[in-house]
Nucleic acid binder design. Structure first.
Length: 854
DNA sequence: ACTGGCGGGGTTTTT
DNA sequence: CCCCGCCAGT
């Protein structure tokens, strides 16, 4: 990630271009884009393609006239009736929508209406009849973005969006292409998509087989390297020798090759292959490529700054023919370099796509003046950027604030106070977000909010489809649908316990390897040999017979029903029913949820594909709450008020980014700061503290350089509201360890906590100690005491200072109440930490001081 | 098959 | 400090 100069890059003479310097290792022959861009839609003139669903592909030249009564015509009619969708666009947006021919780069600053441009552009293409819905390729990174685009397009053009099969994520579209031509790259159309977990298990097997010490050369590391190579579009033989040599004494590239080999045998791909294989396919089969090039008359790409090299190559191949590619992005919001995104893609767009129109959207509709000025001033410190000047007609509004605190506890306390104040002024908690650099920062806020009884929501936790029980269930389904799925088989062969341990599995493995057949087939072969103990043979035979039987019912029974049968008959459900551990109930609940959600899909295979591509749970949590999330997951969102804690050197910018990426790393961190600031509509509040506990040790910190890079005229220094604010005899840290002093002052009985207490929701008064665990002996402080007090919805009234209780006097099985999580049962004890299975909130670890017996 | 002790690692996340 | 994964023991 070399920084690039801001100015226009030198144009190459027309004709064949050499490999762009930024991609020195770009493998195979570079794709000449073209020397000249016609400003008319290029006539394709090709014959009918070999694609399967060609009903809507016009037989010859473009532009196609919409079939009367066809989807495009209907869409057009709808949009004509509506007040013109072009109204209300500003001139730049309008230009971005209307410049249909040739490559277009829309540099869309934060909050400038980029999604609107994309969706309107699609509507515009349809309405002008320039293409059928099925001739538009629109790619996003996330399912969420794809869904949103689909919704918004459909709001504009109605049902015509149903005819847009090529609107989706890079991976979904890659999969779609790959399934159609799987045989051409050595796969079967029903190939499995492995997730990261499977990928790592597979690599572990390879490492074990190769006698490579996994301690020294972790599978995870190799997986990361392989991902990296795939991100850059490199096949095993294209891996630069130096890089391949780093792993396992020079065997990196060879191991990558073996991994690919194994994937083919398993009829599987990993995520990277969903992009790489289509590229290989296109290169090896120009006729197939030509079909797609003809098909995609218009291409739209969202978040172009996040594309990696493979995605760039993929796009460029497809855009060669029609050349109508419109990429929307913001170089200032490129924050995914560490996972392969190439800022250079966007910085070099007009170089890669000669003749490109570059349109800047600089009118911001989100933030007030001071916020915008602050963000702009900060990001101006980056050198490798195209440069935009955001402006707004909105009022200047409040200046962003910068607040210094003593330590992270005070920081959390101050933020809590602020939020309560905002709440008193009528601001909705949903409009407030805390954006942290690293997830460990979240805990302090959670603890604090639990104390305050302030509802919060952590965005970006563990995902539904990553839970063990869900993955087990899916493994059963995979075994049925895809008998060659060895990884799935291994996962569940002994779950529930069937007495088929390592020894039995090794037997099957050896045979499978020798005969080069899948494990299930190998097991079938071996079933009558005497390698197994009688009991094992029985269990294995039953399992295999079950697989065969279920497979026979695939088309006969509704898939959700079949799924339930599989889980029951396999004994999987029974396993959890017998499990008396506290999580069991939740797991059964999740399994039910899984079966329920299957009903929305056409069949088991369709569902499995959905799952592998959409690793998200969309369980909406309706209640009003403050959002806590990382800066990364905040991209694309906006809030009225944004808290930005932890602006300290080492944390933000993160030390590791600096160490590993140098200046590029720093600039990416700065972009992250920019993303954070620009999430705010009306209030941005920056915090840094002088002391922070990192890896258990308190260390003193210095303010982030980003703080000094803020424009003084637009920023206000604010005093921490997390300080006691009353003198007393207790100065300094000791005093700061007490909760907000407001609880003492008569004037402050209006805090939301008091009001909640009075209104009777929650428990009101509860006997409890405060959350203070005392400072670790690590350095400063050292007053390892716990302050006992009475908690009134989080406001601690100090009462006495005593040594920490040796343990908890709670017992397993007791019912307890917790202000935030409600009722639950204690399922585990660990000193003063309890593990409680809450009726509503699930299992949580809480301090005993936060619960009371019921 | 479970458990506990030990060692290593600790930024960000999608598909 | 705290979480996770691995391994060696019961």
């Amino acid at each position: 990630m070399k920084p690039r100069p801001n100015q226009t890059l030198p144009r190459r003479p027309s004709g064949r271009r050499s490999i762009p310097p930024a991609y020195p290792r770009h493998c195979a022959a570079p794709v000449p884009f073209c020397s000249r861009i016609e400003n008319q839609a290029a006539p394709s003139g090709g014959r009918e393609s070999g694609l399967t669903d060609h009903r809507d592909t016009p037989p010859s030249a473009a532009p196609p006239a919409p079939r009367p009564g066809g989807l495009a015509a209907r869409a057009a009619a709808l949009t004509q009736r509506a007040p013109s969708y072009l109204d209300g666009l500003n001139p730049e947006q309008r230009r971005a929508v209307e410049t249909l021919d040739g490559p277009v780069l829309v540099l869309a600053g934060a909050g400038t209406g980029k999604t609107r441009v994309l969706t309107t552009r699609i509507a515009h293409i349809l309405r002008l009849g320039r293409a059928y819905p099925s001739q538009i390729l629109a790619v996003t990174f996330t399912n969420k973005a794809a869904r949103e685009m689909k919704e918004r397009v459909s709001a504009m053009v109605g049902e015509a969006v149903e005819g847009m099969p090529w609107l989706g994520t890079f991976h979904a579209i890659g999969t779609r292409i790959l399934r159609r031509h799987a045989e051409l790259v050595g796969l079967k159309p029903n190939f499995t998509i492995l997730d990261t977990d499977d990928q790592i298990r597979l690599i572990k097997q390879i490492l074990a087989a190769e006698n490579i010490d996994e301690k020294r050369w972790p599978a995870r590391t190799l997986a990361g390297m392989i991902d990296g190579w795939k991100n850059r579009g490199l096949a095993p033989e294209q891996v630069p020798a130096g890089e391949g040599a780093v792993f396992a004494a020079g065997r990196g590239a060879a191991l990558y090759a073996m991994f690919q080999q194994r994937l083919k045998t398993l009829n599987a791909t990993d995520f990277g292959d969903l992009l790489l294989e289509p590229i290989r396919l296109f290169r090896a089969h120009p006729d197939v490529l030509a079909d797609y090039q003809r098909r995609f008359r218009f291409m739209l790409v969202d978040e172009y700054q996040d594309t990696n090299v493979a995605q760039y190559l993929w796009l460029r191949l497809l855009a060669l023919e029609a050349k109508n590619i419109c990429c929307v992005g913001d170089d200032d919001q490129s924050i995914y370099g560490w996972r392969g995104a190439e800022v250079d893609n966007i910085l070099r767009f007009d170089h890669d796509f000669p003749g490109a129109a570059v349109i800047r959207l600089e009118r911001n509709y989100r933030s007030t003046g001071h916020i915008l000025a602050t963000a702009s001033h900060l990001i101006a410190h980056n050198e490798g950027r195209l440069g935009k000047t955001l402006f707004t007609d909105d009022a200047p509004g409040d200046k962003p604030t910068v607040t210094s605190t003593w330590d992270s506890e005070e920081e959390a306390r101050a933020v809590g106070e602020e939020i309560e104040a905002l709440q008193r002024n009528g601001l909705k908690l949903d409009d407030i977000a805390i954006l942290v650099r690293a997830s460990f920062q979240m805990r302090e806020f959670e603890d604090r909010f639990v104390t305050l009884g302030l509802p919060y929501r952590v965005i970006g936790g563990p995902r539904f489809y990553e839970r063990a029980e869900i993955r087990d269930a899916l493994a059963y389904f995979r075994c049925v649908v895809q008998p060659a799925d060895d990884l799935a088989f291994e996962r569940i062969v002994n779950v529930p316990k069937r007495g088929l341990g390592d020894a039995a599995l090794k037997l099957i493995h050896d045979h499978a390897r020798a005969a080069e057949i899948p494990l299930i087939a190998a097991a079938q072969d071996l079933i009558d040999t005497d390698g197994f103990k009688p009991r094992q043979r029985l269990a294995l035979r039953e399992l295999l017979q079950n697989f065969a039987r279920w497979r026979g019912e695939l088309d006969a029974k509704p898939h959700a029903e079949l799924a339930e049968i599989i889980l029951d008959e396999s004994g999987y459900t029974g396993m959890w029913q017998q499990d008396r551990s506290p999580e069991a109930a939740g797991r059964l609940e999740n399994l039910k949820e899984l079966v329920r959600s299957m009903q929305d899909y056409a069949g088991l295979p369709a569902f499995l594909e959905h799952v592998s591509l959409v690793m998200e749970s969309d369980r909406a949590d309706g209640a009003e709450a403050v959002s806590i999330m990382t800066l990364h997951s905040a991209k694309g969102l906006e809030f009225d008020t944004v808290f930005l804690p932890g602006w300290e050197e080492g944390l933000f910018p993160h030390q590791r980014a600096l160490d590993e990426q140098g200046r590029a790393g720093l600039e990416e961190e700065r972009r992250l700061a920019y993303v954070g600031l620009t999430r705010a509509r009306r209030r941005a509040k920056i915090y840094f503290s002088a002391n922070r506990r990192i890896h258990g040790l308190w260390s003193s910190t210095i303010p982030s350089r980003f703080v000094d890079e803020l424009p003084e005229d637009h920023v206000e220094i604010e005093e921490s509201k997390g300080k006691p604010g009353w003198g007393g005899g207790m100065a300094g840290r000791f005093a700061s360890r007490f909760d907000s002093a407001e609880a003492f002052t008569a004037s402050d009985y209006t805090t939301p906590g008091w009001q909640r207490a009075r209104s009777g929701q929650g428990s009101g008064f509860s006997e409890a100690a405060s959350s203070y665990r005392g400072t670790a002996n690590g350095g400063r402080g050292g007053n390892g005491r716990v302050i006992e007090g009475r908690v009134i919805e989080g406001h601690v009234v100090a009462r006495s200072v005593t040594p920490p209780a040796a343990g908890s006097d709670f017992a397993r099985g007791e019912r307890v109440f917790h202000v935030k999580f409600g009722y639950g049962e204690i399922v585990g004890l660990d000193g003063n930490k309890l593990t409680v299975q809450f009726d509503k909130a699930g299992e949580k670890r809480v301090l005993d001081s936060f619960v009371e017996r019921v």
